[in-house]
């Protein structure tokens, strides 16, 4: 079985980091994983998306065109990708930044005001991790222990003090 996830938003929202967390979760489970950023000429700003595959078998295409799981953190990405989600798939939408509602009935949408929740909980810049928590809850891809172990690996040593804040963000996401 292959899980094909697409994460999209603006550069600077932590889209690629969110992908890295999910890819490491797959690696921790001894699955095949791939992570592919959409890359452009700009260093920051602009739209940004990231494909993550987690599979029992070797991964052919790392490029996710029709995701079974979508996280969107801005309006242009919502407009671009919401119709690409495969029927039966899920979409997790940062409703603090996206005002649209999905009209499709063949996918399940979760509206999480992640950016607002992050600000209220003194977790500025961690809306991405809140959404990751929601994804983990809805897909059941990992236990909270796995997530903690993964976070220890993914967070660079110079930011090790942010582990607890990240875990708090995961928990807030899982509670949504």
């Amino acid at each position: 079985m292959t899980k094909e996830m697409l994460l999209a938003g603006f550069g600077g929202q932590g889209i690629l980091f969110m992908g890295k967390v999910l890819a490491y979760i797959g690696l921790y489970d001894d699955k095949q994983v791939s992570w592919l950023p959409s890359y452009g000429p700009e260093m920051r700003g602009g739209t940004c998306n990231c494909s993550v595959c987690i599979s029992d078998d070797p991964i052919g295409s790392p490029l996710v065109d029709e995701p079974d799981t979508l996280i969107v953190m801005n309006q242009p990405s919502f407009d671009k990708f919401i119709d690409k989600v495969v029927p039966g798939g899920i979409a997790i939408i940062d409703s603090a930044l996206i005002s649209s509602k999905c009209e499709r009935t063949d996918i399940t949408c979760f509206y999480v005001p992640a950016t607002a929740l992050a600000n209220e909980n003194d977790l500025k810049g961690m809306a991405n991790i809140i959404l990751t928590g929601k994804l983990i809850k809805e897909t059941g891809i990992a236990s909270i222990e796995t997530v903690r172990e993964t976070m220890k690996k993914v967070i660079p040593p110079r930011k090790a003090n942010l582990l607890e804040a990240n875990m708090k963000a995961i928990e807030i996401g899982m509670a949504q």
């Binding site: 890819a23 791939s34 992570w35 592919l36 950023p37 790392p62 490029l63």
Partner: peptide, 10 residues
């Protein structure tokens, strides 16, 4: 190519 250069895998 750019795909192999930019993607992450184990």
């Amino acid at each position: 190519d750019g795909l192999l250069g930019q993607m992450m895998e184990p």
